[in-house]
Amino acid sequence: MSMTTILQHCLTGISLGGAYALIAIGYTLVYGILRLINFAHGDIFMMAGYFMIFALTSFPWPIAILITLVVTTLMGIGIERAAYKPLRSAPRMSIMISAIGVSYLLQNLSTYLFTAIPRGYPEIPFLKKIFQMGELSASFVTILTPILTIILVVILMILVNKTKTGMAMRAVSKDFETAKLMGININRVISVTFAIGSFLAGVGSILYFTDRMSVTPFSGTLPGLKCFVAAVFGGIGNIPGAVVGGFFIGIVETLLVALGYSTFSDAFTFFLLIVMLLVRPTGLFGEKTVEKV
């Protein structure tokens, strides 16, 4: 394999990894606050794909993107309100089962509404424009994805570490009751968390599907699981960890395909999950526990 081919695949891998990273952040944020693995997250990502298809049939692309992101964000908040909030004081297993329920609900609802026949993902002309860099060629979306991911992650890190809302998020993630005693509105903080996670899944969805041509009601399942693995790999609850995990899985997966092992590219992700859980269950950058009692 020539150097150019390797670089070409790396570029594709980085791009896929960027989309994975954006989705993985949603898992990690929600886990950080609610200790909940939001199984519906991959399906929110899938629904965002359908929103984009329908929005683009009647609006120009900038407005369609805006509509997709807004509706996806609202859907995330709505799901939390309807399916998780009433279970706030229930055992953690109940809310987890509720998340699985939401996941199946979304899959089956979209099968019912949109049928299981793959729908073509619309082409957004400027995203598909081909760039030539020496020997390498890539569509604009391939280059845009990692750059946009990094920008969004930096903004998110500033939000979490430097703003009052971010401080409240970190406080709520450690101790609900004491956060309440500080006058923090827990439900608002949780809504904000779901809003951010779903928004990023919406962005990830646009970038991911633009390269993939079609959406089915089950398009969210495998990417969702992989991004969950990415979050665990990086240390669930840790934002930079989820980003590193996302890029790592995206790149390795693409390289495996390039080397001719496409049959094993999905298996690799789950093999990684098992190894990680056995060797280092807190993940690469897992939460340090320096608590004194």
Partner: peptide
Amino acid sequence: GRRVFPNLTTLENLKIGGYL
């Protein structure tokens, strides 16, 4: 049992006390 937020700095803990 104090219940300070262990993942926040001392200053941040104080700031969050004055959240409102």
